[in-house]
Amino acid sequence: MLLEAKNIRFGYNKSKLVLDGVSLSVDAGERVALVGPSGCGKSTLSQILAGYMKPDSGAVLFDGKPLPKRGYCPVQLIYQHPEKAINPRWKLRDTLTEAWNPNAEFLDEMGIAPEWLDRYPTELSGGELQRFCVARALGPQTRFVIADEMSTMLDVITQAQIWELTLKTAERRNLGILAVTHSLELAERICNRVALFGDLR
């Protein structure tokens, strides 16, 4: 099973393209690190791969077909800023169960304390919120996870914990992972292939 970006072109305004003919593919069970300088279009590509935005031209193919237009998207994106990816007016229980219903064992494994479920996002720290975002993205129908700098806001222990959890789940279910990161050291720890953004043309 393959997630492919084929010859993607995209620009926020007409005069300047952010992505100019970018191609990339991730296989099931593969862990790819996407590395590149700030502002080069890594997050834009992530959002296009997860179906949040449509490219101006080119295609995103999941298992040879376009991403489903409705229903659960098999490609899940985890953002850099958890506070931007969570509804501030919802209790976290609602945020989590909007996607799927994880059991207590899974939540425990993710390091989510049961009492956090009845809190609002402002009452938890960034690291705690990010655990919810990871748990939410790892629903049973997820095949690929795109982690856009998901651990940069976290302390090193939490970073190591969250990656350990993500990788464990990914391995068990043969998920493909695309990790956007600036840290080559982190990339070497978590991935089996490094893709430099500049080489994707």
């Binding site: 304390a113 090193v156 222990i157 939490t158």
Partner: peptide
């Protein structure tokens, strides 16, 4: 524990929160 969790020093998380 923080030191041990740094990627180049082993990336070993300590249990618990």
């Amino acid at each position: 524990a923080l030191w041990r969790a740094i990627p180049k020093n082993g990336f070993r998380p300590t249990e618990g929160t």
